[in-house]
Write a protein that binds this DNA or RNA. Sequence first.
DNA 1: ATAGTTCCGGAAAGAGATTCCGCATACGAC
DNA 2: GTCGTATGCGGAATCTCTTTCCGGAACTAT
Lengths: 201, 201
Amino acid sequence: MSDDTSDFVVRERAPRRKRTDARRNIESLLEAAKTVFSTVGVDAPAKEITDLAGVGVGTLYRHFPQRSDLIKAVIEREIDACADAAPALAAEHEPGVALAKWLDRFTAFVATKRGFAAALHSGDPAFDGLPGYLMQKLGPALESLLKAATASGEIQARITAQDLLYAVAKLCAPMPNEDPDYGRRMVALLVDGLRSGESPH
Amino acid sequence: MSDDTSDFVVRERAPRRKRTDARRNIESLLEAAKTVFSTVGVDAPAKEITDLAGVGVGTLYRHFPQRSDLIKAVIEREIDACADAAPALAAEHEPGVALAKWLDRFTAFVATKRGFAAALHSGDPAFDGLPGYLMQKLGPALESLLKAATASGEIQARITAQDLLYAVAKLCAPMPNEDPDYGRRMVALLVDGLRSGESPH
DNA sequence: ATAGTTCCGGAAAGAGATTCCGCATACGAC
DNA sequence: GTCGTATGCGGAATCTCTTTCCGGAACTAT
């Protein structure tokens, strides 16, 4: 009780940040998983991933006890990358171009990542949070691009960021035997529809 | 050459139709698989299915060498059942009611069968033929219902069978964190929209 | 440098998928 | 009916991948 550290015991102990080797391994695992997932598929043997990452299996299971944890982490990291691309594109291009380029990037993500659609439809509750995560991360990113493009007069905002995201996501959800470029074209159409002035609707 | 059966060797030999016990087992397996898939999920252990079907594992693997073969067969058989329901409903109900009831049945199929959406998005080429199969089987079925309902003046055909099928299928594709009745409501809305006369659009 | 954690690797155990083959059963010919 | 043969059956054995576990290595704070 009179122990002079007692005041600190109560305080939320900052949980000494993860060891550097641990963080490095997690990084390697995510990178390897991303590669293997897009190569072999999300059901690829764990060994494949750990070998590519250069770690033991134990390490994989310590950081990602469930396979779904790994998949979720990979997808979230890709969503993050997508979100990060927004400011970068905004800095390098005219607002309208930046918007188009970003949507193209997002489309590519949704269209090519089989794992994403599969995860969503797997029925595994572990993935329930993903749509929300996507919305939360990408909503603001798109919103800023949209706002900038509207402000510069290049487009007219006839749609909210949220609706646009959903529309793109659903349009691009890959279907077997569907022209793989179908989604991209639909989105292009959508964006053209946003451009102001030219078409006399 | 002068062998008196030589004429027959060339002819496609009718491959003596499958033994009855084999057909019975296949039937049991499909029935069991349907039950287990909707209970435990499409990734349920094979033993679960064979036990319920009352056959050995070997029998499962003989008739369905790949798991995707089983899944595909189950889905196709449900599609068939859906198609078969059309004439039955048409015989028992007014055309408009029959149409509504059939769409309800189709909706239930798409919405509840996680396996269906999962299969479509799995990326496994084994399932590439499914959308086509669905269209081919269900297209004509819906078309006849639609035609009857139009003829009786209960609805106005503002949409093709194909478009309606796709719309329903996409609307009902289950998404995590989405009101599970959302799809059904959307479809109801769609059908209401087809009813003639009442709303003064 | 040293004590105290945290983390690592990979062997071992477990779970399920898939194969294999001797035996059983149905079919067709007579 | 009965016989010969093709076909199908069951389930033990095998194989593959998953998941656990723990002795020791590596990192951090002092």
